[in-house]
Amino acid sequence: MTFDETTICYPKSYSPNTSFMDSILAPIKGELNDSAGQQLVYIPALRIKNKVPEYSLSHANDYNPKVMHDVNGIIYPLSTIDINGLIDNAWNIHQEIENPVIYKDPKTDFFKVFTFKKEMGPWHLVKSAPVKNSNKKKAKDWYIGFCGKLAGSYNCKVNVVYKDIVYNYSLNEHNVSLHKQVEAALLEEIKSWENACPES
């Protein structure tokens, strides 16, 4: 598949034949521009663990004895997605909410920045608490992801960018401390997909 100017060829097994996106987009299928496509991509947990030995393969939650920590997400063309919107929202939270709920997650030492006035709903996961003077420059890798609760834990939507590709994927609580290592593994994976394409 080609996303803007970048073409990748990943294993067919990484994209199911049908997806929740197909059913969501079905009513407007005739109105969609295929050239601005997006693709659902699953990467097996073991594939990540082979590159990141500390990666947790699975855990038990409130409803299932084991849940595999496959990396799943959607690939977008970089030209069609605003990757800075959530980052700016978290950094400017003091301008949006008076006395926002911000605290350090004791399990990861990262900070949770909630999007509502109370500790409810989704939150941003960042490396340091946003400051009231948001004109101050933030570190390039300050923002980690946009998170929400799951059964007995949580997961975060994280972006990794390679050339013209944005892969927005889920990273569970058990592996969120390894986000930089997982990002490096995914960049290596996507680069291998680009190299796998036959020369035209």
Rank of each mutant, 00 (worst) to 15 (best):
I93Q: 09
D88L: 11
P16W: 10
K117G: 09
V131K: 14
E183G: 08
H124R: 10
N84T: 04
A129C: 08
S153H: 03
V113N: 01
Q38I: 03
V126K: 02
V126A: 04
L32Y: 01
Y162T: 08
E173A: 11
G30K: 15
K136V: 07
D4C: 01
V176A: 02
L178D: 07
M68V: 07
M120L: 12
H59A: 09
P27L: 07
S56W: 06
Q95R: 14
T6M: 04
S177H: 07
Y162K: 09
A45R: 04
S56E: 15
P77D: 07
A90F: 04
V161E: 09
N17Y: 05
N72F: 15
Y154F: 15
I102Y: 03
K107E: 11
N135F: 09
A36H: 11
C147A: 14
H69E: 12
E98Q: 15
N64C: 15
Q95G: 15
K66Y: 13
P53V: 04
Y63S: 12
N33S: 10
A60D: 01
P11Q: 10
Y154H: 10
K12I: 12
L178Q: 05
N155H: 03
V113A: 07
P27N: 08
L40S: 15
T80P: 08
T7G: 01
S134Q: 11
Y162H: 03
N133T: 05
A184Y: 09
E119W: 06
G85F: 12
N159S: 15
I24V: 13
S128W: 05
C156I: 14
S177T: 13
A184P: 10
S200F: 05
K127N: 00
T80K: 12
E199D: 14
N155Y: 12
G73S: 05
K136G: 13
A36E: 10
Y154E: 03
V126Q: 06
F3M: 08
Y103Q: 08
K180F: 15
G152K: 03
S153D: 11
N159A: 04
T6C: 00
N135T: 08
Q181N: 00
D34N: 07
E199C: 13
L86K: 08
H174A: 04
S58W: 08
Y10T: 04
P106K: 10
F20L: 15
I43R: 01
N175S: 02
K49H: 14
N99P: 06
G145C: 12
F20T: 10
E54G: 09
K149G: 06
P122L: 03
K180L: 12
I165R: 05
K137S: 13
D70G: 01
G152P: 07
N17V: 09
L86N: 05
N172I: 05
V71N: 00
F110S: 00
